[in-house]
Design a protein around this nucleic acid. Structure first.
Lengths: 242, 242
DNA sequence: CAGTTCATATAGCACTGCTATAGGTGCTAG
DNA sequence: CTAGCACCTATAGCAGTGCTATATGAACTG
């Protein structure tokens, strides 16, 4: 059984690796299995990918593109926080659909090997949160919010993957998701009491203005003026007192 | 260089494995390295642990006991939610101190291999949350809260491990921690507006009563009566409307 | 003392990731 | 058309891996 179709060997290697990885149930996948399934000999792998890890990185990169594509499809609903929710759910679903790939992507993160993907995922989340911030719906800096939400998102997905599929309860996901979103969002539509745990409206406004300024490259101020202005805004919007 | 001291070979193997694992920087650790450092020959490993994975499981179990011991030391402050905070911080610190061990414990979770540790960690967290529930400080079922908090805790710890040590910003941890705790806790000391996102006091009281009942094996009701009563309480305390 | 059980060692198998070397393929230059 | 060249692939094999069949010793038990 080999992967025919006259794709170039590089593609066949990628697909073979992805397929074996997906069905490996955690057992290690050997280069010999991959090359055999791809109908190719050993050195071909090393010619194209240099390394076994190089091949796996390529598989992960392809998987991540798929992930990003999935995230972008659901993007523009006009309600940024609602989009974040969908992004979260999409992330979880991606992990549950391709658990082995997901574990390679987020389960084995080590400082020297793979934070690039995490950074990309964070950027994707931050991009969405910037819209929420510009709409005055955010309580904290978009970057911090993105990192925090993504961390919880990954943790929940790993936990769900760890459970046997029959016992999986997605309520864990929705509950954690809403908790995180609620925590980073400005007080919801209802005019809550100002003494609340939420930040003051000054802070929220500052964060919103900050996001808006960084989005629309205003040229009312010189770049040096803008830089200082943003610094002040940042100081205001991170003031501990609120 | 071998691990002397006349400990029995089983202990020497455990220590050698733990030490090599701790300094492996993600590179795989071979049985030959372990047995050589332990001053022992190959079959001894398999005699005592059956498997390489058996040895690693033993290392993980030892590490987990250390983790649990650390959690229990900080337990009884009288303020359950404050204890949860310390538990969270302790968890993160454990992960950052022994990243390789932590990655083996929580990074490679697969349904068929290792959810026992997760279950134990959840039980530990739930135990603490039961006190919070009994004190009327909890918004949701202790079990669900424990799962949710632990998931976020693991996610944050993995993210921090993935970052180069120099760039680690523990604010990610404290922010996510407080977000999660706030989300599962009943409205804080300040009397917040009743139209708030928090559940009604009826629900909180029901959850508290539920926890108290399950803790102190009351014999005012027969076991069948108690069972039904608990079911009603559960229904009340999980009612969506609040 | 013999018999049994436990604990360790010698030697080796099948497999792993990887590579030194060589051979084929398609191109452009003359 | 041939010569050269860069690209891609295959044969064969190395050092290292997890693991084990077998044997040897030590320590009890009768």
């Amino acid at each position: 059984m080999s992967l025919d179709g006259q794709l170039p060997p590089k593609m066949r290697l990628l697909r073979a690796a992805a397929e074996l990885l997906a069905n490996s149930a955690g057992a290690p996948v050997s280069t010999r299995q991959i090359t055999q399934l791809a109908g190719v000999s050993a050195p071909t792998l090393y010619h194209h990918f240099g390394d076994k890890e190089g091949l796996f990185d390529a598989v992960v990169a392809a998987g991540f593109e798929e992930y990003v594509a999935g995230e972008r499809d659901f993007a523009p609903s006009g309600h940024p926080l609602e989009d974040i929710r969908r992004m979260w759910d999409n992330h979880v679903q991606f992990g549950l659909n391709q658990p082995e790939l997901y574990l390679v992507m987020f389960g084995n993160i080590r400082p020297e090997s793979r934070p690039a993907i995490v950074a990309d995922a964070e950027a994707l989340m931050e991009e969405m949160l910037n819209k929420a911030a510009a709409a005055g719906q955010l309580n904290v800096q978009p970057r911090e919010a993105a990192r925090s939400i993504l961390a919880a998102n990954v943790g929940v997905t790993l936990m769900l993957i760890a459970e046997p599929a029959s016992e999986r309860n997605l309520e864990l996901s929705t509950m954690t998701r809403d908790a995180m979103i609620f925590a980073v969002s400005a007080e919801p539509a209802s005019g809550a009491a100002p003494g609340d745990a939420g930040k003051s409206s000054v802070v929220v406004a500052a964060i919103a203005l900050n996001a808006a300024l960084q989005a629309s490259h205003s040229d009312q101020l010189s770049s040096s003026e803008l830089k200082l202005f943003l610094e002040w805004l940042h100081r205001i919007s991170t003031s501990p007192a609120g």
